[in-house]
Amino acid sequence: MKRFYILGFLSLIFFDTLAQVSFKYASIHAEPLAMDVAWLVRVFGHPWIYGAFVGYIGAFFTWMTLMKHAPIGPAFAASYLELISVTLVSVWLFNDTLTIPKVIGGLLIVAGILCLARQESPEKKGATWQPNLDESA
């Protein structure tokens, strides 16, 4: 069962990270940004945007599977902790720099997420928190 959780959380983070990296590549290939049809055509004419779909769909089904068994608190935290993996991958793939404000801000956000996860942790039936699987979280 423990292995199930670990594999589940790792795949969740993997799919979320894949989605974000694909989004970033798609946006790079579609440059320059313009609010017009030509920009959308550039976005959807490139394979990376479909990587984002794969990431979303994978994350959705992983989340639904995890939800059947895992407590909501840690699962909620894990779904947002992609923040860490995405940041590390950005440094590697996109040469993002880890400035002091980014490190401090990132740590504050992670601490905040852990507080929320702690709140959601007690095994209450019918917890109302809705998972947020979208990219911007």
């Binding site: 970033k24 946006s27 790079i28 940004l33 801000g105 979208d134 911007s136 979280a137």
Partner: peptide, 29 residues
């Protein structure tokens, strides 16, 4: 939102974008 997020990502580094995106949690709560 899908389109807005793509537009946002063309302007900011991915690591900054995901961190700023966490603000959604605050507003949603």
């Amino acid at each position: 939102e899908f389109v807005l997020w793509l537009a946002f990502l063309s302007l900011v580094p991915l690591s900054v974008a995901v961190m700023l995106g966490s603000f959604n949690i605050v507003v949603i709560m």
